[in-house]
Write a protein that binds this DNA or RNA. Structure first.
Lengths: 239, 239
DNA sequence: GCAAAAGTGTTAATCTTACACCCATGC
DNA sequence: GCATGGGTGTAAGATTAACACTTTTGC
């Protein structure tokens, strides 16, 4: 058996360094009871007029995990956002420029708090439910990320990244409903949330609502970051 | 706003086509009540003597999803295996040969049925519990895949890919226990499995066991493939 | 006073957990 | 006949699901 140094191995594989890798961000926001995502007009002639996800090629000296943060920063000015890797897409002809494999991340941001500095390009929020078609395979990527988001909000307190610091239980329930696409029973919802012990009662009331104002809450401090958090009852499958 | 053709875009980014992408396979098997994985002696001088996952660079004209199937075929002769993408790892210095980003897949195979044609290299099964260290960041990749496997066996009938066609309920329970690392109550386990309606009673008995033989089962036909399968009670989070 | 949402408990059904005894087989 | 696991049921506790009335506010 003959070992080769990394240098030798590299040179023998030079023709493989012929695939580019990008990241694409599915940036979710929430406004007026609707889940939205941030899209940009495609700047490729092949997809003229179509919308696409925010993405970019990974730089040769850039960690893959930092690339989506850079993309968000460059395109929207956003920092300190919640980001999570979802899946890598690499079918042969997904990109007309050549072989580009892309890793998709989803991000959750509070639309109203983070005022976007929309840079040079045409970047806009779109209701997720209205999106039928996107450039590249971006519709598939969106669907995959949405599915993952639905799974995650059931398991972890990530949903609060979509809300302002203070929110009412109605707002929280509306948001769950927008994400999951189902209606929830108000009384059961409130009981369930109370059990999770994610919230702090602020002793403040809603304002400017055309009905009886509800209490305002914020999320407990230790939950905002990625937070794996105690997994009470990991084993629900078999006794 | 000026649109560029894909050709122009490609040439302006030529220096980005400087990152290689590989796939690495975490191939799980099960033998003598232990979960095992298939490893190969690293052929890089930098990792001399260490074990690593089976992997390879993706070929320029190869779909990312078919790469792990090719790797398995080439290294072990295995075909028709269960494979699932888990995560993409791309920290800057994970590979001494240069910038290599890798997408990890996990695979489940029946060790005893698929007789491996172990090709040129030194490929061996190792007990997962015994593995403390691997070449590259492969220990991290293994841990991530193991975590995903644990999650998946609780949700979907993928576990049967690790068993021979006919098996007893004891074998199935032992396998769950090996994967999850916990003990399960026999009566509750059997009830739970019966409820899932995954199995067909073969009306045959175990043989060559030094105790009362148990019934043999096989999995229902429609479950062996990737099979999303009905998700009874998707919404367990909130009423 | 009317519209809109806040706030709040009980019951039935389902699921989960803990637990013990006799049976069939190989040796 | 002894060791080993096969096969089976029940009861208590926890969780989920369905459901309605009074209260507070803005208009």
């Amino acid at each position: 058996m003959n070992l080769k140094t990394a240098e030798v191995e590299k040179s023998s594989h030079l023709d493989y360094f012929n695939i580019a890798i990008s990241v694409d961000c599915v940036i979710f926001g929430y406004d007026k009871k609707e889940l939205e995502i941030l899209l940009i007009k495609s700047d490729l002639k092949e997809f003229e007029g179509m919308w696409s996800l925010l993405g970019d090629l990974i730089k040769p000296n850039e960690d893959i995990e930092s690339a989506p943060y850079r993309v968000l920063k460059e395109r929207t000015g956003l920092e300190d956002v919640y980001l999570e890797q979802v899946h890598t897409f690499g079918s042969l002809n997904r990109h007309p420029s050549g072989r580009v494999i892309t890793t998709a991340y989803y991000s959750l941001i509070d639309i109203n708090h983070h005022k976007l500095q929309l840079t040079h390009n045409e970047v806009h929020w779109h209701k997720v439910g209205d999106i039928k078609k996107l450039a590249f395979d971006h519709k598939l990527i969106l669907d995959t990320c949405l599915q993952r988001l639905r799974q995650q909000v059931m398991e972890k307190p990530v949903i609060f990244n979509l809300l302002p610091e203070k929110f009412s239980l109605r707002e929280l329930q509306d948001l769950y409903q927008a994400i999951l696409g189902i209606q929830l029973d108000r009384r059961n919802f409130r009981k369930k949330i109370a059990l999770k012990e994610w919230l702090v009662d602020l002793d403040e009331m809603e304002d400017n609502v055309p009905h009886r104002p509800g209490k305002l809450y914020k999320v407990k401090l230790d939950l905002k970051p990625k937070s794996a958090k105690k997994k009470k009852k990991l084993i629900a499958f078999v006794s």
